[in-house]
Structures are given as structure tokens and as C-alpha cells.
Design a protein around this nucleic acid. Structure first.
Ligand SMILES: [Zn+2]
Ligand SMILES: [Zn+2]
Ligand SMILES: [Zn+2]
Ligand SMILES: [Zn+2]
Lengths: 161, 161
DNA sequence: TCTGGCGGTGATACACTGTAACAAACCCGC
DNA sequence: GCGGGTTTGTTACAGTGTATCACCGCCAGA
């Protein structure tokens, strides 16, 4: 398993995130447009999962409104490029600070008190899941694993108030 | 792991499902009202995951309309009692034909071609997940694991058309 | 018997999430 | 410049879920 160490290095490092994204798009011959940049920046600005409408509102300024549909399109693009994840149990989105290996499963750790979403992965879990699916005669194309609970920081905070 | 054998015994056996539900409610001192019965029956009638609005429409007859909000309330009740599951990736609901042990994890196998949803569980996966969460300092309260892919029947059908 | 509480339901309205369709703008190679 | 693909703007709409209040039925307790 790899849990990414130094949680800070991961989220809230929007500039790095943007640079990575731009490089990745250039490399793949895709357009890293201003809208896509802004949406990614907005997602990366918080370590909480954010809804598409929240992002749209955040990007809107009195003179210039960003419609949710535009945000959805940008998010679709960013998800295809592996730059953001969708949290199905929250209908919300987080930036991805990992370059996941293709087919690598991701485990989302969603803190119910602070709302932060962390990513982990586990060869154990993945191996067990593969075996289970094979025994069930099921050929997977995509899977989601989301865990809700209390993150270490919040648990500590609760113990020593 | 236990995969329930005889997929037929599981879904589409609405009468059994209803009898189980009624017994369970009586045992717990809860009301198995006509609305709850009807909603459970509607959910159990298909092996596909069904949306709340589909259920509402199915239960509505010219003279008597069942509002989605009523369906949601019944579904909330049925979920609390462990009689139905919500499939987060589909915003839809399936009947539960298993009496899950408390805290037992469930794996949902969602066929993308026929839409059927099967349940499985795996001690391997659960153990691996527990270890991963502990190492991450995360205390889980609830987790969802949903896999999309092709079920055995559909794969076979595709091979021999 | 009356009455007050309580859980369940009906009904309306509303908030939130996501997509379809079409037009306009943009980019890029010919 | 022209033609064709991609991106964005705009509007409308479909789908999902919740808040609120009123009403009903039941049952315990006065
Ligand atoms: Zn990631
Ligand atoms: Zn937390
Ligand atoms: Zn179940
Ligand atoms: Zn199938």
C-alpha cells in the first residue's frame, strides 16, 4: 500500500498542480484552456470535496458568470486526464495529486467532520478484490471504493479538546 | 468470501422478501406499513437497480399517485432495516437478499450491459482495507465498494451470439 | 371518554445535480 | 481566407433529493 506522506504536499499546492496539468496536456497534445485551468485551480484550492455548483459560483464574478454546465465539461475533461476525481457518495470533486498507474485502484478516505478527502491504495485490497470478482465470474471495468469516517487529525482534536 | 449461490434465489423472490421483512419489523417493533410493503415489493420486482422516481411511477395508478418524497421516506426506512441498498454510483436502489452481519462489508457488482446488481463479500478485501485504514490513521464508520463491469451471463452471451 | 403526543403519510415547494441542444467563438492546418 | 474540429456560452430541461406543514390514525395516560 502507499499512503501519500505529507498530506500538505498533496492538496493546497495549487501552483504545482497547475504546472503538472499544463505539462501533461502539452505532452498529450490537448488544450489546457483558461476555463479548465480555473476549474482545476478552484478544485485544488480546498482539501474538501467541492460540488460543481460551488465551483461555478466561486469562479463567477459580477461581470462574468461561469455556468455550471461549463464547469461540468471542464471537470469531465480533467477527470479523463486523471487530474481530478469524482466522489460518488458526495457528488463532489477533488484534485488528484498522484499519478496513478493505469488500472490502479484508489481508496478515498472521506472525513465526516472536517470534510477532507485523502487518497490511499492497497495491493492487498486490490488483490483480494480481483480474486473475489474472478470467483464471481465478473469482469470489472471500473470500481469505486469510498470510506467515510474520522481522519487522524480530527480524532486527535476530539480526544484533546 | 461468500458469494451467494443461485442468483435466482436472491432477487425476483419478492414474496419471500416481503415475508422476511414483515417478520423482521414485527420482531423489532416497527411498522411494516402498506406503503413500505409496496415500495419494497417494487424494488424486489426487478433485479436491476431502480431509481426512486421509477418506483414512484410504478406505484402510481390513475386514481392514486405516490409522490417521490413518500418513496424516499420508505426507502430510508428500508435501508435502516437493511432490506434495501443504495447504489451510490447509480442513484438507485436494490433489494438485499442477505442478512448481513453487522459491520460486514458488501461489494456491489453492477453489470453495465444487463444492469443487474449482485452482492458479494470478501474477508480478504475487508482485512486488507482494515489494515490500510489503520495505517492511514483513519477510523471508518461506513464504506461503499461498487464495481462496474460485465456479469458472467452477459459475457457468455457476448461470446456466443 | 377525552386528549395529547407521536409516527406515518400527503402535498407542495424548493434546492441540488447533471445533460441535451444549438449557436457562437476559437484554433489550426490547408 | 477557408473549412472542419474543438471549446465555450446560453437556454432549457431532466433527474435526484430535502424542507415544511398539515392531516390522519393510533395509543397511552388523565
Ligand atoms: Zn488520485
Ligand atoms: Zn478530519
Ligand atoms: Zn445486501
Ligand atoms: Zn449482465
Amino acid at each position: 500500500m502507499h499512503r501519500h506522506e505529507g498530506h500538505d504536499a498533496c492538496r493546497s499546492d495549487a501552483p504545482d498542480m497547475l504546472a503538472r496539468a499544463e505539462a501533461l496536456c502539452r505532452e498529450r497534445g490537448l488544450q489546457f484552456t483558461p476555463l479548465r485551468r480555473d476549474v482545476l485551480e478552484a478544485v485544488a484550492e480546498s482539501d474538501k470535496a467541492q460540488g460543481a455548483y460551488d465551483i461555478a459560483e466561486r469562479l463567477s464574478v459580477p461581470g462574468k458568470r461561469v455556468a455550471p454546465v461549463s464547469v461540468y465539461r471542464a471537470l469531465d475533461f480533467l477527470m479523463e486526464q486523471g487530474l481530478v476525481h469524482r466522489i460518488a457518495s458526495r457528488n463532489a470533486f477533488i484534485p488528484c495529486a498522484h499519478g496513478h498507474a493505469p488500472g490502479e485502484g484508489v481508496i478515498f478516505l472521506i472525513c465526516r467532520s472536517c470534510g477532507a478527502v485523502d487518497e490511499a491504495s492497497s495491493a492487498d485490497v486490490e488483490g483480494g478484490l480481483e480474486r473475489t470478482l474472478e470467483r464471481a465470474g465478473f469482469t470489472p471495468t471500473h470500481s469505486i471504493l469510498e470510506v467515510e469516517g474520522d481522519c487522524g487529525a480530527c480524532r486527535k482534536r476530539a480526544r484533546t479538546p
